[in-house]
Design a protein around this nucleic acid. Sequence first.
DNA 1: GGTGAATTGTTTTGCTAACAAACATATTCC
DNA 2: GGAATATGTTTGTTAGCAAAACAATTCACC
Lengths: 406, 406
Amino acid sequence: MTQPPLPHLSPPLPAIDPDPSRRNNLALITALVHHHGSLSRAQLTKRTGLNRSTVGALIGQLVTLGLMYEAAPTGKAQVGRPSPEVHPSPSIAALAVNPEIDAVTIGLMSLGGKVQKKIRYATERIPTAREAVNIAVAVIEGMQSELAASYRITGIGMAVPGLVNRDDGVVRYAPHLGWRDEPVARMMSEASGYVCHAANDASLAAEAELIFGAGAGQRNIVYLNGGASGIGGGLVSDGTLLRGSSGYAGEMGHTLVRTSGTVCHCGASGCLETEVSQAPLFELAGLDGGDTSQLEDALRTRRSDKLDKEVARQLGYLGIALRNAVNTLNPDAIVLDGFLGVLHALSPQTLGDHLQSQALGGPASEVTIHRAELGSDLMMIGAAELAFSQFLANPAGMGAVPTARR
Amino acid sequence: MTQPPLPHLSPPLPAIDPDPSRRNNLALITALVHHHGSLSRAQLTKRTGLNRSTVGALIGQLVTLGLMYEAAPTGKAQVGRPSPEVHPSPSIAALAVNPEIDAVTIGLMSLGGKVQKKIRYATERIPTAREAVNIAVAVIEGMQSELAASYRITGIGMAVPGLVNRDDGVVRYAPHLGWRDEPVARMMSEASGYVCHAANDASLAAEAELIFGAGAGQRNIVYLNGGASGIGGGLVSDGTLLRGSSGYAGEMGHTLVRTSGTVCHCGASGCLETEVSQAPLFELAGLDGGDTSQLEDALRTRRSDKLDKEVARQLGYLGIALRNAVNTLNPDAIVLDGFLGVLHALSPQTLGDHLQSQALGGPASEVTIHRAELGSDLMMIGAAELAFSQFLANPAGMGAVPTARR
DNA sequence: GGTGAATTGTTTTGCTAACAAACATATTCC
DNA sequence: GGAATATGTTTGTTAGCAAAACAATTCACC
């Protein structure tokens, strides 16, 4: 797969390295605008605590750089001079890649968390790392003229279901994809010419829900997603995703919930993931495959004793994992996604009651349990966030790194 | 207990509120010096990345404020002009208070983690919150003339064995002291006239080990302490103590390690704390009370089958809790204190092997297990750190808050 | 419909603090 | 004793933030 060196960034802006203070303030404003979709200058002034004139200068710079634009205020006006709304430029974009067992999904995402384009490329069999990269690169090359014309791409973010070293972008082990020690970020960088970072899918999902979804406004959340390939998690503490030493943090699917339980592929037994899984639910609901919403419909309509028992059993084990998490991490909120969200929705009291009786009084009394909100765009948003992160840390540096080579 | 308003800060310095940038840099240097005991100016320049002249100016300001002093370099000289050592002023101090079931310990701690004075006030019975406060205040008042003459006190830090809300300093529940919803920080503030903050003892211990002990240099650690009153923990992620929503985070003593295990006072069953405890070890070792080092001696010398079995059993359960923690948090290091440190020292391979086979490959391969290093001064250091934190965040503001009223 | 109050953008001015460069000082190595 | 090296010190320059004064735009009230 040869590839001509393409000018990925429309105008090759000069590399700017402003004072740390300036950079920090630019980053602050960019992040606020990005995470809220848009904010008025007055709101930005309040939220940053900076001076009116300073905020004006900062926004002026961001507008000049083409990273934002201003528009007339939309809502009905208040007393006083109207404050223009600051919007992120939709041309600032990131590519999101999410390999799964039956498809590779590629998204073109712009600032503000908006999906500009999403392509699901179904595969006949589980893709290898090389195949996933090739598919993604082919799709991206297909968009190349459009990208070059209308977008400035900050990079590629990959959300991989497995253990991913966030520092070097190596997939240490992805059991369901069958990948081991695959340097996917480097492979993708070299094949596409874009900077690429990779991380665990559930961690990125947690970040997405924190910023744009059910965790918005919270500082400490525990996110758990249940899917066909098991249970993944992401932890947010004080507004930041917990990474741990190498970015592996959050693997709560392998917490012990049952002594001498079923043996897990991880080597241990009685893991949350082995005791709580969607396969028996699908079966008892009489479904032969399908997605989460189908499962939910089926569980709501075709109830049976057996099924109720299984739901209760799984909720019990989920409750144990949550008890551990609540005691250990004292979160503001727990966000449940996938079939875990379905389980909770079926019996909204159960998990809360569990925690009240099983977890420590202090942490348990404060936590609330939510269902995830972002649905199918979740992974795209999370992966894009990974690609945006470098840009968000130094918005004025945009253009300094035109092509890859991390 | 009436109390005359005392001038707690020798020279009533004017309140200074420097630019955020300046404040940040002053804080950076102060923290570095505090955590290392002393550093040369050249080292500070390298570590901060600031300009030589800037570092010179910053240190000059800190010396003028009486927060640091410079001394001739100690080690044998290198090529080039010798760089003076910057030491924290020992007159900058904090008071540490640690109530336990049989005593209240009060420490006078100075910058650099040094214990200037430590007084253990034994009590006949478990002290109430009011009694603990009264004892501490009485001891502090006894030192008052010395304090006024030689020290500038940044405040009081309390390390309490129980759930403590770090924001308001209320002890939510301290099972072994029998305290419930006691606003100890406010009580202490009002009774002593000093700013007071309170936190969980193990969390503070984790912070102390991170900064001065076995975790020095690490960014992500899991700290677990086993004592007469159970198992407490503290978690550090990316160099910062995990607080959670209200500062309750770290309670790993109540992680499930055994389904249908012994019922715990927390309401759940099979908690780490119920399955792993020092009482049976003392008994099997033929000891009737005593401290950790006595236990260690006894376990090393008087071995028996029963005892070996019990040690193995407890290590097994401890291994499960660590597996959960390693999977969830991906730490660089695990630090074990108290009798947990003894258990580990007795059979240093066991826990590591456990983790290799039970925890996920990525996280497990990176983690190292250490024994705590700080010993008996641990709580004093941790509690003092709590009292120093405000000062460390804005060293030049010292003097702005002469007496209490958080 | 006009006037005043309120709010916010804009321009000007001044100050703080960081950096760079040139210089000074103290040590080792030869 | 001199060169090389490392580091403290002094001076000048610049970036960037904030305060103040001014301008613009809206609402409320009469």
